[in-house]
Amino acid sequence: MNPRASLDPRASSDPRASRTPRPTRRALLGGLLGAAALPTLAACGGVTSLDGGSGGGGSGGGSSSGGLVIGTANFTENQILGYLYAEALRGAGVKASVRPNLGSREIVIPALQQGDIDLLPEYQGNLLLHFDDTAKQTEAGDLQNALAVALPAALEALPYAAAEDKDVFAVTKETADKHGLRSLADLHKLDGKLVFGGPAEDKKRVVGLVGLKDVYGTTFKEFKSLDASGPLVKGALKKGDVDVANLFSTDPDIQANGWIMLADPKQLIPAQHIVPVIRSAKADAKVRRALARLGGALTTQELAKLNKLVDVEKKDPDDVAADWAKRNGLTRG
């Protein structure tokens, strides 16, 4: 997922309240409907597409005639999204296959650039920080525009979905009550005394230890390399092996366990709307329309329900995606 990750810290009294500015209706419509018309501007280090073209730009001149290979990161939600992309594309008459669980963003982005996969579910803010770790944008529309500049020439970000899933930094209720923790700013009074758990990449990511130190002045006694909002990090938080855990805001276990998502008053964590990243050589009008239709139908609440079906009820992500796509009119027949 994370990669994305995966892909929001919220006040403890309301686990769904955003701590970064909510995108305005104008910005959301701009992302859902207008971004397909925005050209992807060439950036340094762009790769050559497999069909011999430059692949740059969002003109819609690509071709999906050979089908698309969709890759996903190594967490539940991203796999569900990959299968949803496949269902939406098949419903539009495009051949699609899924290569799930490939790894973190540091693995799947190079795979996309090299043409091993053609399409990837991503998360706006963390994707931008992957290519530009100095980026300051936090609002969805601004992030979309920044991605058009930051992405390599052969890649582009298609219109983002209504659904959003942010990284959150969570603690148990016991830890929050004991130390008076309600926001990330509160961690500074325990500087160097707590244990942090998350995926290995958190050690070098802005939305991770780097940002927590630079923005909130917080360091930790120990970093435990675990997984991305998966059973390892959640088990460690539950047992007390870690004090602060990097989870995802749509993870059903947060509410089930009464964990506290620490507020983010300095907006370290940007908007994380789901955004398809595609090789431009494959991004024809049929693909764009299919993914935009999916993005308009998929809300944060619906995505959280799909995560619960897989993580809690132990259903297969491909079956969950197929059923949801059918119920929402995205498949044929």
Rank of each mutant, 00 (worst) to 15 (best):
N2H: 10
N2M: 04
N2C: 11
P3V: 14
R16C: 00
P21Q: 02
P21L: 07
P23I: 06
A27G: 11
G30H: 03
G31L: 10
L32I: 06
A35T: 12
A36Q: 12
T40D: 15
L41N: 00
S49L: 03
L50Y: 11
L50R: 15
G52W: 13
G58N: 10
G61L: 14
S65F: 08
S65V: 09
S65R: 15
I80G: 02
Y85P: 01
A88W: 07
A92H: 03
G93K: 11
G93F: 08
V94E: 01
V94Y: 03
A96Q: 09
V98P: 06
P100M: 06
N101H: 14
L102C: 08
L102Q: 12
R105K: 06
R105Y: 14
I107H: 12
V108K: 04
P110M: 08
P110L: 05
D116C: 00
D118V: 05
L120M: 11
L120K: 10
Y123N: 06
L129C: 04
F131I: 04
T138V: 15
A154M: 12
P159V: 08
D165Q: 13
D167S: 05
T172P: 08
K173M: 01
T175H: 08
A176D: 04
D177E: 15
G180Q: 08
L181C: 05
L181P: 02
L181W: 07
S183A: 09
D186Q: 02
H188E: 07
H188N: 08
D191C: 02
D191F: 05
K193M: 12
K193R: 14
L194S: 01
V195D: 08
E201Y: 08
D202A: 15
K204M: 11
V206I: 15
V207Y: 07
G208W: 07
L209I: 10
T219S: 12
S225H: 08
G230T: 06
P231W: 03
K234M: 12
D243Y: 10
N246P: 00
L247D: 01
F248Y: 03
S249P: 01
S249R: 05
T250A: 09
W259K: 02
L262M: 08
A263N: 12
D264E: 06
I269D: 09
Q272M: 14
V275G: 03
S280V: 01
A281P: 00
D284Y: 09
A285I: 10
R288E: 06
L291N: 03
A292H: 10
A297M: 13
L298I: 02
T299F: 10
T300D: 03
T300A: 02
Q301P: 00
E302H: 14
N307T: 10
V310E: 04
K314H: 15
D318S: 13
A321Q: 07
D323Q: 15
D323A: 15
W324R: 04
W324S: 04
W324V: 09
N328I: 01
G329M: 00
T331Y: 04
R332G: 09
